[in-house]
Amino acid sequence: MSSGSSCSQTPSRAIPATRRVVLGDGVHLPPGDYSTTPGGTLFSTTPGGTRIIYDRKFLMECRNSPVTKTPPRDLPTIPGVTSPVGGEPPTEAGQDHLSSSPEDKPAGGEESQFEMDI
C-alpha cells in the first residue's frame, strides 16, 4: 500500500517542550477568535466546553501593554482609591504614581510587603 509506506516515511520529531512567542506592540491578535492565539497555548478544552484560560505569568505580561497606561475613560474618581487622597482628578502625574512600581511609592510601611514571599 502506497499510503502505508508514505506514512512510515514521515520523519518523527520530538514534541517541543516549550514554545516562546514574543509579541511586539504592533502585533495583531485575532479579535474574537476564542480558539487561536499566536502562542497557541492559552486556550484549553474542559468537559464544560472550551474556556479561556490564562496563567498568571501570561496575565502579568499583558500588564505591559501600552493600553494599560491610561485609565479607563469612565473610571470614577474616588479619593484614596482611584485617585490620590485629597480628591484631585487623576493627572498624568497621578497615573504615574498609581501605576508605578512599589518602591516608587511614598508612605511605605506596607510597600515592601507586596513583593514579600509569604
Partner: peptide, 18 residues
C-alpha cells in the same frame, strides 16, 4: 468602579486603583 472584558481592560482598571 467599572466593567472589563479583556485582560488589557482589567489592567487599565487595576493599574489605576490603589
Amino acid at each position: 468602579i467599572g466593567t472589563f472584558a479583556s485582560v488589557e481592560q482589567f489592567w487599565r482598571f487595576y493599574s489605576h486603583m490603589v
